[in-house]
Design a binder for these strands. Structure first.
Ligand SMILES: Nc1ncnc2c1ncn2[C@@H]1O[C@H](COP(=O)(O)OP(=O)(O)OP(=O)(O)O)[C@@H](O)[C@H]1O
Length: 712
DNA sequence: GGAAGAGGACTTTTT
DNA sequence: GTCCTCTTCC
């Protein structure tokens, strides 16, 4: 099994073969930390350690899957599951839920469920949700939880700095969660920690449950996570953590750099290993990255040497506005693709999610295949959330947030007033409203459409319950058929309806997939119906990676989502003051330095080629343009790299372009026939607005491959 | 009393 | 674009 060590350098070997006791690998970007973790897991497995006694934790689902893949690559035939902190804690809590006053199939609320609940609690207490946005209040509650403060703790009442709305709402919020048999993301960590702290038997049991703990991206753990880790490792101290203080980019989630720095003190006898070769990037890219990060003052210095040669210079792309930025990036990518570059080796990063829109539009027009990584999209889509809310109500009738969401979907005549009457009547009967309706009980004072609506909804619930939620797909289909959902929702016959239908189909497929695997999965979910197990799984999946993982597309993602990944060609867009670094982080040194770390992360993802991009103006939400100053990061690139002229020049080659005039009929491969509404610009930059059946599109003539339709 | 459509406010980063 | 509230019709 020495082959497991073959492609490792000496310090890596030392880390991988380190047997027992605390181990800290602290090293810069691209130095092979992740390789250490995955190889170490393989090494342990190869030496007879039971995979169930290893707990490997990463930060995102994506990273967990990727790393599991690498272990299986190194050790064919083996199967191992790596977790995120949240999924591991959720799984533990499901076993211990009754002790905490929850049933084991409790619901997990995502951020929008949380805000929904907060909103209704605020309204009940006469707090205007417009004056204090639920999401803001929720964010503050979240950061309290991430520093370990519950409303029942004395600190909560003593602290002066807590907003009065938070002060009023936090405790009712926790009570409501419990009444709904629900936890939010932060509860998953905090409640598990409290369970260990307050319960010596549980603590002892969990401290013996694993023999080896391995944690990637340790610089981004928060206090709660570290406390959990300490307790899990308290008996054997076989704890291997890996990280890079310069890549700490989650302080908004409570991450504390202190964790990785104080690790050797917290675990006396820690073996500290440094990795000092960068295997990922060209020397040019690495030198730039190090110049960038060297300007931070709060820093733990490390050595990092390039292994590769100088490589190509860094490129700069400066555009007049956001859409030109997208087009220029698209042009460049198109050329790379034409040279035979694998689209999966190209990535576009942005600081803020909304920047992806403009890029997407341009890529669509240019026909560049792309994929949005970590897109919240799918599970946040209206129709998907509606359907999941229905499943949620079936599985957990106490969940009022989901109940309120799907009660009147599709519209069945139930409004504000009938809703209130139902709640009051159900409360009088001492039943959750969902249960009240399921029994077919009547709400006095409600007649006509609303009355029928209640009865109908109750009947669907009853029928679903009658089938004991045995298959996810069956339960969904029941809802779809009884409500005629698709027809109700897709009435307008427009563009988006097709999407909606597809999303529903996608969910059904996903559900069917889960049903098929239920037999092997069921042991992971004790006391769960298939439906509640499905929900348990889905509510921790915030992305839809797997569905499209193999598509040959350019990858679009936030810088945060790029952590731990690598690509041959990287474009960082939106390098403008206020955007990246973001204005909300520019007030203090810590904020600015974190932006710089974030930029460092972005830069160090690139293996061969890096492009820094900015626009001179950008459209605001009102549609007007705002001038944008180049980001200091962009300027540093310019300076460090000698101002380097303009490596980005249009090539005046390709032959003639067809000319179009307003009113011409044209045919497009994908959008069909349409008429030209507007012609913008000249020559290679000509854009046309075309009215197709599905709506108006703006296309670049050069790439749209439009055909004139004569005699229309 | 409800539904559908118009108009306003708001967009950092994630589990 | 999206989410939410307010208005206008049924
Ligand atoms: N000893 C080695 N020899 C050659 N290549 C290596 C070696 N170790 C790692 N690599 C390669 O270097 C690249 C970076 O490795 P890895 O992702 O493990 O680094 P990392 O330290 O986790 O990076 P980051 O912190 O930036 O995410 C990968 O392509 C990996 O395959």
């Amino acid at each position: 099994m020495d082959y497991l060590l073959e492609d490792l350098n000496d310090p890596q070997k030392e880390a991988v073969t380190h047997r027992d006791g605390p181990l800290l690998v602290i090293a810069g970007a691209g130095s092979g930390k992740t390789r250490v973790i995955t190889r170490r897991i393989a090494w342990l497995l190869a030496h007879g350690v039971d995979p169930r006694r290893i707990l490997g934790v990463t930060f995102t689902n994506k990273a967990a899957r990727e790393m599991a893949g690498r272990v299986e690559e190194a050790l064919p035939g083996v199967r191992i599951r790596l977790s995120t902190f949240h999924s591991a804690c959720a799984a533990f809590l499901r076993r211990s839920a009754p002790a905490l006053g929850f049933s084991s199939d409790f619901t997990i609320y995502d951020t929008s469920d949380r805000d929904q609940l907060l909103k209704s609690l605020m309204k009940e207490r006469g707090v205007d949700p417009k004056e204090h946005r639920p999401s803001q209040i929720g964010a503050q509650i979240s950061s309290l939880k991430n520093s370990g403060v519950l409303p029942t703790d004395p600190e909560f009442h003593q602290s002066e700095s807590i907003h009065y709305v938070v002060r009023r709402i936090y405790e009712p919020y926790q009570e409501a969660l419990r009444a709904n048999n629900a936890m939010d993301f932060d509860d998953l960590l905090l409640k598990f920690l409290r369970l260990l702290q307050n319960n010596p038997e549980e603590k002892a049991a969990y401290a013996r449950r694993f023999d080896y703990l391995l944690i990637d991206e340790f610089q981004d753990t928060n206090k709660i996570q570290y406390d959990i880790v300490k307790l899990l490792a308290s008996e054997h101290k076989n704890l291997c953590v890996v990280g890079d203080p310069d890549q700490s980019i989650y302080s908004f989630r409570g991450a504390v750099l202190g964790n990785i720095l104080s690790f050797p003190r917290d675990f006396p006898g820690t073996k500290v290993i440094r990795l000092e070769n960068n295997y990922r990037s060209t020397a040019n890219i690495l030198a730039f990255a190090q110049g960038v990060i060297a300007r931070n003052r709060l820093r733990y210095e490390k050595v990092l040497r390039p292994v590769h040669g100088e490589g190509e210079p860094i490129g700069f792309i400066e555009a007049a506005d956001g859409s030109e930025e997208g087009t220029l990036v698209g042009h460049k990518i198109r050329r790379l693709l034409d040279q035979g570059v694998d689209p999966r080796e190209i990535a576009v990063f942005y600081r803020a999610r909304f920047l992806s829109r403009e890029i997407e539009t341009c890529f669509k027009n240019l026909g560049i295949p792309y994929r949005l990584v970590g897109d919240l999209g799918f599970f946040q889509r209206r129709e998907v959330k509606d359907l999941l809310a229905f499943l949620q109500v079936c599985a957990n009738p106490l969940d009022r947030v989901s109940f309120e969401r799907c009660l009147n979907v599709p519209p069945r005549g139930i409004g504000q007033v009938s809703r209130r009457l139902l709640m009051e009547e159900a409360a009088r009967e001492g039943l959750p409203p969902a249960e009240f309706l399921r029994r077919g009980m009547i709400v006095p004072g409600v007649r006509g459409k609303a009355k029928r609506g209640f009865l109908e909804f109750g009947k669907i619930l009853e029928e679903a319950a009658g089938r004991s939620l045995e298959t996810v797909q069956g339960t969904l289909r029941l809802f779809l058929e009884r409500t005629n959902y698709l027809n109700e929702i897709c009435r307008t016959g427009s563009w988006e309806d097709v999407d909606r239908e597809e999303n529903v189909g996608e969910l059904l497929r996903d559900a069917a997939e889960f049903d098929k695997r239920w037999e092997e999965l069921s042991e992971q979910y004790p006391d769960h119906s298939p439906v509640s197990a499905y929900l348990a799984q889905v509510s921790l999946m915030t992305d839809q990676e797997e569905r499209q993982a193999d598509s040959a597309s350019v990858q679009l993602m936030t810088v945060h989502a790029s952590k731990g990944l690598e690509f041959d060609h990287v474009f960082i867009v939106g390098l403008e003051e206020g955007l990246f670094p973001h204005s909300r982080s520019m007030d203090d040194l810590e904020g600015l330095e974190e932006e710089r770390r974030l930029f460092y992360v972005a830069v160090t993802r690139a293996k061969k080629r890096l492009f820094l991009c900015r626009a001179e103006r950008r459209r605001g939400f009102d549609g007007g343009f705002h001038p944008q100053q180049p980001s200091s990061f962009f300027q540093e690139g310019r300076q460090q790299l000698g101002g380097g002229g303009d490596p980005w020049v249009y090539e005046e080659d390709s032959g003639e372009l067809p000319e179009f005039a307003v009113g011409d009929w044209v045919r497009h491969a994908r959008f069909g026939e349409g008429s030209i509404q507007t012609v913008i610009g000249r020559g290679r930059n000509t854009k046309v607005e075309i009215l197709f059946q599905g709506g108006i599109r703006t296309l670049l003539v050069e790439y749209a491959k439009l055909e004139k339709v004569e005699g229309a």
